[in-house]
């Protein structure tokens, strides 16, 4: 599974090593809007992580065994006067909060900074490979 070109977005990979069940979501914003129907819950940290957990449990994963890895949450340009553009940091906080609330340990992260990332998630062993433009690769 691959999430291409993550900027402020965060890729969240969950994996249960015992049964080899895993999944990844691409979080765009911290919270789902309350006032409108959410067509794709996986785009929000609050609804997305819960949704992925539920789907994995249906396939035999168990919450106590699931580990999480995350990447993204960058601030692509340094512009001081645009606090609304610090969405990467807000996404990061929301993802961490929701993982904590659901009792899913965070065992690897590559988050923040001012550069984009592509996140590759390998279901055979739960490994995550981060690729970048000009900043090398990283394994989580």
């Amino acid at each position: 599974m691959v999430a291409y070109g993550l900027g402020s977005c965060i890729g969240v990979a969950l994996f249960d090593p015992e049964v080899g069940v895993g999944g990844m979501i691409h979080v765009v914003l911290p919270t789902a809007p309350a006032e409108q129907e959410v067509r794709n819950p996986t785009r929000f940290a609050d609804t997305g992580i819960q949704f992925l957990l539920r789907e994995m449990e249906r396939l035999g994963a168990r919450r106590r065994r699931i580990r999480s890895k995350i990447a993204g949450g960058a601030r692509m340009f340094e512009v001081n006067h645009a606090p609304a553009l610090d969405i990467g940091n807000r996404n990061w906080q929301a993802v961490r909060e929701n993982l904590g609330r659901l009792g899913l340990p965070l065992v690897g992260e590559d988050v923040g900074g001012n550069y984009g990332r592509t996140m590759h998630f390998f279901l055979k062993d739960g490994q995550v490979l981060i690729t970048t433009y000009g900043r090398g690769e990283k394994i989580l």
Binding site: G5, G7, M76, T132
Partner: peptide, 8 residues
Amino acid sequence: MVGAILNW
């Protein structure tokens, strides 16, 4: 990456 810039 252009995708990272656009989604930010």
